[in-house]
């Protein structure tokens, strides 16, 4: 039996992606804590390794060594399914991101569509986690997660659609190829509003502060993952950071010219841009208070959505006139 070369390629890529996701999560956790520390005028993790560099690794080991607890009366299947379900779509998302012309796990023609489709799965995991853990805080967190994700998906889609209109393709590699090396040749110059809408929406999508309502710890203790311990919690934690990386990577692809940059094109430009975006996300988190839930939805339905629609219509109109 002949194994199709494409399958081998995907398996290899999947393994590579898993390693990459793990590495990224560790790095991001470290960065987040260091950034937070420096913003708050303290050193952050400092004890384990030089400048605390292996602290996240040790934390991961600690999480793995802890006991897995399930509350009495929880729905066992859903309870354990949820963290896994939150992790798997993220892995798939990583597959189709073009880091460079060569470093693309799985080049799909409808890459953008795939990403948007899989990104929506995450909310199912949060819902299951909140519902399955038989905890009232979890339930409230899950309810918040669902309405928030559903709401923020729409302006996100509309913002991305504007890019698709403009470039005429859903293939991520081609979207990057449509942009030039220099910053003024990137899509963000043509579509600044779409970028802002996209960036605001991904904060809501990934439950990052100031939109971290599903786990708002001063209101809901820990929201949907109140009852999770050990790697159950660890997977949610990793999925959150992996999700952040994915949405920032997509932002890089769509708006910031992907792997293209001045002088030397390559994956380093991709990483640099992604991490700048991630840094901004972390910066926001450690600066702002949390919005209230009705305000969160108001921002979405009353501001982002009309703006996104206007942006899309404007793009379509201009495309029709000039192209």
């Amino acid at each position: 039996m002949k194994i199709p070369i494409e399958l081998i390629r995907i398996v290899v890529a999947l393994v590579a992606v898993m390693a990459w996701v793990g590495l990224n999560a560790l790095l991001l956790v470290y960065c987040e804590r260091k950034y937070a520390g420096h913003i708050q005028r303290r050193p952050g993790p400092f004890e384990v390794g030089p400048h605390g560099i292996i602290q996240p690794l040790i934390d991961g080991l600690k999480l793995m060594a802890k006991q897995l607890l399930m509350p009495d009366g929880a729905d066992a299947i859903l309870f354990w399914l949820a963290p896994i379900l939150s992790m798997i779509p993220v892995l798939l998302l990583f597959l189709c991101i073009p880091y460079s012309p060569l470093l693309t796990g799985w080049e799909v023609n409808l890459g953008l569509l795939l990403i948007l489709a899989f990104a929506g799965l995450n909310v199912l995991a949060l819902l299951l986690a909140g519902w399955g853990s038989n905890n009232k805080w979890g339930l409230l967190g899950a309810a918040r997660a669902v309405s928030q994700s559903v709401a923020y998906e729409i302006p996100l889609l509309l913002a991305v659609l504007a890019i698709a209109f403009q470039t005429g393709t859903l293939n991520l590699t081609e979207i990057v190829n449509g942009q030039g090396s220099w910053p003024w040749q990137w899509n963000i110059i043509v579509q600044p509003l779409a970028f802002l809408i996209y960036f605001t929406s991904i904060l809501g999508e990934t439950n990052r502060a100031p939109f971290d309502l599903p786990e708002a710890e001063s209101e809901l203790t820990a929201g949907f993952h109140t009852e999770y311990s050990s790697m159950g919690f660890g997977l949610f934690f990793m999925a959150e950071y992996a999700n952040m990386v994915v949405v920032c990577s997509v932002a890089t692809v769509l708006f910031l010219g992907g792997w293209k940059g001045p002088f030397f094109d390559g994956w380093w430009w991709f990483l640099a841009k992604t991490y700048v975006l991630l840094f901004v996300m972390i910066w926001l988190r450690w600066t702002y208070p949390r919005v209230r839930f009705d305000q969160l939805l108001n921002i979405n339905w009353k501001w982002l959505l009309p703006l996104a629609v206007a942006n899309l219509l404007g793009t379509a109109f201009l495309m029709k006139v000039f192209a």
Partner: peptide
């Protein structure tokens, strides 16, 4: 209070 409202940093400045 600001911590209750979800911002983590001001308490550190206040402690300063």
């Amino acid at each position: 209070y600001i911590l209750d409202l979800g911002a983590f940093t001001p308490i550190m400045y206040a402690f300063d």
